[in-house]
Amino acid sequence: MMQRVTAAGAAAMLAAILAGCTTDRFVPLAGQFGALTRDAAEEQNERLAVVIAEERERSREALTERAADLRAADCTQAIAGIRVAMAAALPQSTATCRVIEREANGTLVELPSELRFDNIAALNDALAGYAEGLILLAANSAEDEAVLTQSVSELTIAIGELDGAIRAATGDESATSTDRIDAAGGLLARLGTTYMTARRQAVLKRLILEADPLVARATSLLGGTDGALDLYDSVARYAAIEQAVEAAGAARSAGDPAALGEQQAALFDAVETYNAYPAEERRYAAIGAAHAGLAAAARAGADAADLSAAAQAVIGLAQAIGATRKAFAGETP
């Protein structure tokens, strides 16, 4: 299992990075950003999976409670009356099944679509892929040109996939981004002589500059998604506050000091949990700010002042991720 970066660990590593020579700081800083961003994207997909599972369970429990008459459609329809030999030759898609409901009057109706976040999950995966590419290129100290070329090619592919995921998530199929970044091949070709003669630091700078508008767009979309998820979660979290208020009121009316203290403590905990969740949305804003800091440092030649500012932005990202994990730690599975 991949070990995730802690806020304290990130701060310590960044302090060590800033203690080094200016010319050597940019590459490890980019790698640290990659590690934090990969963790954030993977954690959000875990959160999405939990929401999907909760909604699926809720909808299926509702069907059971009202004793819904469920049937299977398509699969039986497709092969009914067809000889076995003929059925075996049919395309696999003809045997696809789905569950439908038979109403009291005999009408067959479709069930509501289950909650899905395919495009958002794919966008998170693409952002994590870009982050992983940064980690690998930053860690690749090989002198072998073929090995370095492979690392750069993989990172370039990841940038193209991030571009595609943004267009899929937004429904924007315009060629604006692909004109600038031609998926895997075009950007690598445009690096030309610079790639062949420069160190990985120069390559990283160029790729980060190219990817910055995409990262900014992706983090804006994903931060907005988390805002919607926070609203979804807030219903249950606010219900916990209401329950705590009622329990504390009952203990107060009963004149039970011990129970009152316990229920008031539960109320404080419920309010703290409610307030902790917006850290998730801030986390994606922190990713965008940290990447913008790296891009600014790359654009300016990565001097000491720009690197220091970028490092502070990455530390802010580590702190935002730490706050989110603290919020999740208080959840009941």
Rank of each mutant, 00 (worst) to 15 (best):
97 C>P: 10
61 E>H: 10
315 I>D: 06
299 R>I: 13
76 T>F: 13
126 A>L: 00
118 D>N: 09
153 S>C: 13
216 A>I: 11
161 E>M: 08
219 T>M: 03
329 A>V: 01
28 P>T: 00
63 L>A: 02
324 T>L: 05
310 A>I: 04
266 A>V: 06
187 L>Q: 00
325 R>P: 01
103 E>W: 14
195 Y>C: 15
136 L>W: 13
302 A>R: 00
21 C>S: 10
179 D>T: 14
152 V>K: 09
125 D>P: 11
158 A>K: 01
139 A>Q: 09
153 S>R: 09
241 I>H: 03
275 N>R: 14
30 A>K: 01
105 N>I: 01
198 A>Q: 05
77 Q>T: 13
307 L>Y: 03
47 R>L: 04
214 L>W: 01
11 A>I: 03
298 A>F: 11
81 G>Y: 00
156 T>N: 02
135 I>Q: 15
64 T>I: 14
169 A>V: 11
144 D>R: 10
88 A>Y: 11
322 G>Y: 04
184 A>C: 05
178 T>G: 13
13 M>K: 06
283 R>Q: 08
304 A>T: 05
6 T>A: 04
54 E>N: 10
266 A>G: 04
317 L>W: 00
76 T>Q: 06
15 A>S: 01
224 G>S: 12
124 N>D: 09
242 E>Y: 10
69 D>R: 05
124 N>G: 06
291 H>R: 13
9 G>S: 01
105 N>D: 15
31 G>I: 09
312 Q>R: 09
136 L>S: 11
322 G>P: 03
54 E>D: 12
153 S>W: 07
79 I>G: 06
148 L>A: 13
218 A>V: 13
180 R>P: 04
79 I>N: 03
65 E>F: 13
108 L>Q: 14
48 L>D: 11
302 A>V: 01
298 A>C: 07
152 V>S: 03
12 A>N: 05
43 E>F: 12
61 E>W: 12
230 D>W: 15
121 A>S: 09
5 V>T: 07
58 R>V: 08
331 E>K: 10
211 A>W: 02
272 E>K: 13
198 A>N: 05
49 A>K: 09
